[in-house]
Simulated scan of single mutants.
Amino acid sequence: MSWWGKLVGGAFGFMLGGPLGAVLGAALGHRFDKGLQGLPDEQISWGPGDQERVQTAFFTATFSVMGHLAKADGRVSPDEIKLAEALMAQMSLSSEMRKTAIRLFNEGKAEGFPLDEVVEQFRLECHRRQTLIQMFLEIQIQAAYADSRMDRAEEALLLHICSLLNVSEFTFRRLERMIRAQSHYAGTGRGDRAPSRTQGLSVKDAYDILNITPEATDKEVKRAYRRLISQHHPDKLVSKGLPEEMMKMAAQKTDEIKKAYERVKQARGMA
């Protein structure tokens, strides 16, 4: 049975406690606010239910933090709501999962949302799985670009989230450049510079998606491509705790990385 099936079926042996459990419980109308809160990492048991715990934590943190981020600039824009809805549609969520995701988004928007505690517990649940933490950050950065730009309040909040996750500003800037290029290519922004997908991928955006500069050698281009494909491989991410419902999103990212690589190869005349 999937993590969601166990969740709604009442098999809560793997259920989260602490802040994430409280947020999820509020969305589901239950109370799971006991457990991991305040426990140091070495006291947490990572048993057979580890993957299901991580999947539950990822789902809970993704949509609640996205709601909090959407309100960072003082208001939740229609584009931010549309992006959250588009992500839910891309995941092909069931009716009940979609309702829960919306409730989690609203929990994140609410006054008193315990951002620091939620992100800290998410980090513990991920148990140093950096590719999973990076995927979480990519989704949040993508949410920040829902209205075609990232304002200062959103940037400051994302940097704060990175510090809680022990992610460097250098890594954040690298991810931000990649997501900005992907959003530009996909035409998710509304600005005049955002082309539709039919206009093709520019060489500049292709380099940014691969997180390299035009000065990179052909060998460095190939290395960057292989690293990104490995980091975003859907099956690998699911094995580390990405909810199965997010596989389509991971697959889309790998498709964009492949297109960027082909565009750079074409521009360079690489074999």
Score class of each variant (00 low, 15 high):
Met1Val: 15
Ser2Glu: 12
Ser2Pro: 14
Trp3Met: 09
Gly5Cys: 09
Gly9Ser: 09
Gly10Thr: 04
Gly10Ala: 05
Ala11Tyr: 08
Ala11Leu: 08
Phe14Gln: 08
Gly17Thr: 11
Gly21Lys: 03
Ala22Gln: 12
Ala22Cys: 08
Val23Phe: 03
Leu24Ser: 05
Gly25Val: 08
His30Tyr: 06
Asp33Cys: 11
Lys34Gly: 15
Gly35Ala: 07
Gly38Tyr: 03
Gly38Val: 05
Leu39Phe: 03
Asp41Tyr: 06
Gln43His: 07
Gln43Asp: 13
Ile44Arg: 04
Ser45Pro: 02
Ser45Arg: 10
Trp46Asn: 10
Trp46Ala: 13
Pro48Ile: 14
Arg53Tyr: 02
Gln55Cys: 10
Phe58Glu: 04
Val65Ser: 00
Met66Thr: 00
Gly67Arg: 00
Ala70Glu: 00
Lys71Ile: 06
Asp73Thr: 14
Gly74Trp: 03
Asp79Arg: 10
Asp79His: 07
Glu80His: 01
Glu80Trp: 01
Ile81His: 01
Ile81Tyr: 00
Ala84Gln: 00
Glu85Val: 06
Leu87Val: 14
Met88Asn: 01
Ala89Trp: 01
Met91Gln: 05
Leu93His: 03
Ser94Pro: 05
Ser94Met: 08
Glu96Ala: 14
Met97Thr: 03
Met97His: 00
Arg98Glu: 12
Arg103Cys: 03
Arg103Ser: 11
Phe105Ser: 00
Lys109Pro: 00
Ala110Tyr: 06
Gly112Tyr: 02
Pro114His: 02
Val118Met: 05
Glu120Cys: 12
Glu120Gly: 13
Phe122Asn: 04
Glu125Arg: 09
Glu125His: 06
His127Arg: 13
Arg129Phe: 06
Gln140Ser: 02
Gln140Ala: 01
Ile141Tyr: 01
Ile141Arg: 01
Tyr145Phe: 13
Asp147His: 08
Arg149Asn: 11
Arg149Trp: 03
Glu154Thr: 04
Glu155Arg: 10
Ala156Tyr: 01
Leu157Met: 14
Leu159Met: 11
Leu159Cys: 10
Cys162Thr: 07
Val167Glu: 04
Ser168Cys: 09
Phe172Ser: 12
Leu175Tyr: 10
Leu175Cys: 12
Leu175Phe: 11
Glu176Pro: 04
Ala181Ser: 12
His184Asp: 14
Tyr185Pro: 05
Arg190Lys: 06
Arg193Tyr: 08
Arg197Ile: 15
Ser202Asp: 01
Lys204Gln: 12
Ala206Arg: 02
Ile212Gln: 01
Thr213Trp: 03
Pro214Arg: 02
Ala216Arg: 05
Asp218Asn: 15
Val221Pro: 07
Val221Leu: 15
Arg223Ile: 14
Ile229His: 11
Ile229Lys: 14
Asp235Arg: 12
Leu237Tyr: 04
Ser239Tyr: 07
Leu242Cys: 11
Leu242Pro: 12
Pro243Ser: 05
Glu245Ser: 11
Met246Val: 07
Met246Arg: 09
Ala251Leu: 11
Ala251Arg: 12
Asp255Leu: 09
Ile257Asp: 08
Lys259His: 10
Ala260Thr: 04
Val264Pro: 03
Val264His: 01
Gln266Val: 07
Arg268Thr: 09
Arg268Ala: 09
Gly269Ser: 07
Gly269Thr: 07
Gly269Asp: 06
Gly269Phe: 06
Ala271Arg: 12
